[in-house]
Amino acid sequence: MPNAVPQYSKEADPGKERTRHTIIDVARLTREQKQPHVLITAFSLLAKEFPDWDLEFWGVDPGDGSYQKYLSDLVGKLGLNDRVFFRGVTTDVLSVYLNSDIFAIPSSFEGFGLAMTEAMSAGLPAVGFKSCDAVNEIIRDEVSGFLTDDGPEAYAEALRKLMADPMLRKKMGHAAKLEMEEFSPERVWDEWEKLLSKLVQNKKQ
């Protein structure tokens, strides 16, 4: 049974002309699961080609902070201190979605990917790995985003397609929003009610 996903009345406009465009990743900063270092490396392959794009991480290192220091050092080593930002936490994540252009989820594994589905429900196209369970069941490749082979090079190619084409971002973002209606609270609770009713009936028999 899936999680319920908020159905936002507002929709992002990832095809909008802006002074600066933004790729976001909303997740804990963890090496093995969330893999933000892979996203930073992928972005570094595109930074010169797309000088009006930035990368933002929303989330914190739940450990001792050593991994976040590693990420900060990596950003500096790649010369991206003015392009990659660690924003910490927010109590208004919808505003983050609405003011962004692409949602990136470079995870190696997921249970459901709630931040991803929320971003898609807000109208953002998403990019994830085809090897990542849950992600590969929610993103429809070339419809609501892209599923890529493992590694920063393949991930960069998927990002490039969206970064270079505002109409594609808009089309895929709108498709993502429509597809997230499948996980609306009303539908999910209805499925739970059907399941519980069936269990009660079976127990009475």
Rank of each mutant, 00 (worst) to 15 (best):
S144R: 11
P2W: 02
G65P: 05
M172R: 11
A158N: 04
T117G: 02
K77W: 10
Q68M: 14
L46G: 05
E49N: 11
G173I: 08
P51Q: 02
E110A: 04
S131T: 14
L94Y: 07
T41M: 03
G128C: 06
A104T: 12
S66F: 00
A104I: 12
E142D: 11
Y67D: 01
E49S: 08
S95Y: 01
E110L: 04
K10L: 09
F112E: 01
W53N: 01
G145N: 08
G128N: 08
R187M: 02
R140K: 15
L71G: 11
D92R: 15
L55W: 07
K69S: 03
M167D: 13
K194S: 08
L55P: 07
A27K: 12
G79D: 07
D149M: 02
K203E: 11
T90R: 03
N3S: 08
E118P: 05
D54T: 12
T148N: 08
K194E: 10
K198C: 05
W189Q: 10
H21L: 13
M1W: 08
R187H: 09
E17H: 12
W53S: 00
D25I: 04
F129G: 05
S108D: 04
K171T: 12
N99L: 04
D61P: 00
P125F: 07
K77L: 10
E32G: 04
Y8V: 06
N81P: 00
T30R: 11
N99D: 13
R18L: 01
F183D: 03
Q35W: 06
E153F: 01
K69V: 06
K171H: 09
F109R: 12
W192R: 14
H37M: 00
N81M: 12
R18S: 05
M180E: 15
A47V: 14
L46N: 03
F112C: 02
A119N: 09
E56Y: 08
I40M: 04
A154I: 07
V200A: 13
L74G: 03
F57A: 05
V188D: 04
L124Y: 03
G79F: 06
S144Q: 10
R187T: 09
E182N: 12
A175C: 05
F50N: 05
N3K: 13
G76C: 01
L80H: 11
G63H: 09
K16E: 15
R140P: 00
T117A: 10
E110D: 06
V200L: 14
D54N: 15
E142K: 15
I24V: 15
P125C: 06
K177E: 02
L74V: 05
A164H: 10
A156T: 04
F103P: 07
A156I: 05
K194Y: 00
T91G: 03
M163Q: 03
L80S: 13
Q7R: 13
D101W: 09
E191C: 01
A175W: 01
S197Y: 05
L55D: 06
H174N: 14
A42E: 02
N136I: 00
D133E: 13
K194H: 10
Y8W: 13
N136V: 06
G65R: 09
V5P: 08
S184A: 14
P152T: 13
